[in-house]
């Protein structure tokens, strides 16, 4: 009785078994990459994203500094950028005006914990 069962198992198409294994492996891989992304990659991209935002904020300051009262020699020419930056402008202005401490902001970027 045992043998035929073993036989039966052996007779099962091998593709099915490997396919099952494949899906498990895929799930595992996805899960692992998700873990990795969440822990390492995400932290890395977050830092890069923060850096990109910082540079963009500085660029906005150079382009539209006169909106905050800082004279800009080419404010007339930067106006033509407004249609493309207007959506970012209002939150940027709020961010700039609400800045309390640049130091604290910078410190917040690093994981001191």
């Amino acid at each position: 009785m045992d043998m035929p069962q073993e036989e039966k198992e052996r007779n099962q198409p091998p593709e099915e078994e490997s396919e099952e294994r494949q899906t498990v492996f895929e799930t595992l891989k996805e899960w692992a990459s998700g873990m990795l992304f969440g822990s390492f990659v995400e932290i890395g991209t977050q830092a890069i994203r923060k850096e990109a935002f910082d540079i963009n904020d500085n660029l906005m300051l150079l382009l539209f500094g006169d909106f905050l009262g800082i004279p800009n020699p080419i404010s007339y020419y930067t106006l033509e950028l407004l249609p493309y930056m207007a959506e970012e402008l209002v939150p940027w202005e709020r961010r700039m005006q609400n800045r309390k401490s640049i130091l604290a902001e910078k410190a917040g970027q690093y994981d001191f914990g």
Partner: peptide, 29 residues
Amino acid sequence: IQEKMLHIVSPVIVDEIKRQIEIAYSSPG
């Protein structure tokens, strides 16, 4: 610029930054 803005930006934002445009427009230079 204003015409281009109406095509790209929402009217709410346009209204909000109208003041800024005025500032740049009357800036020295």
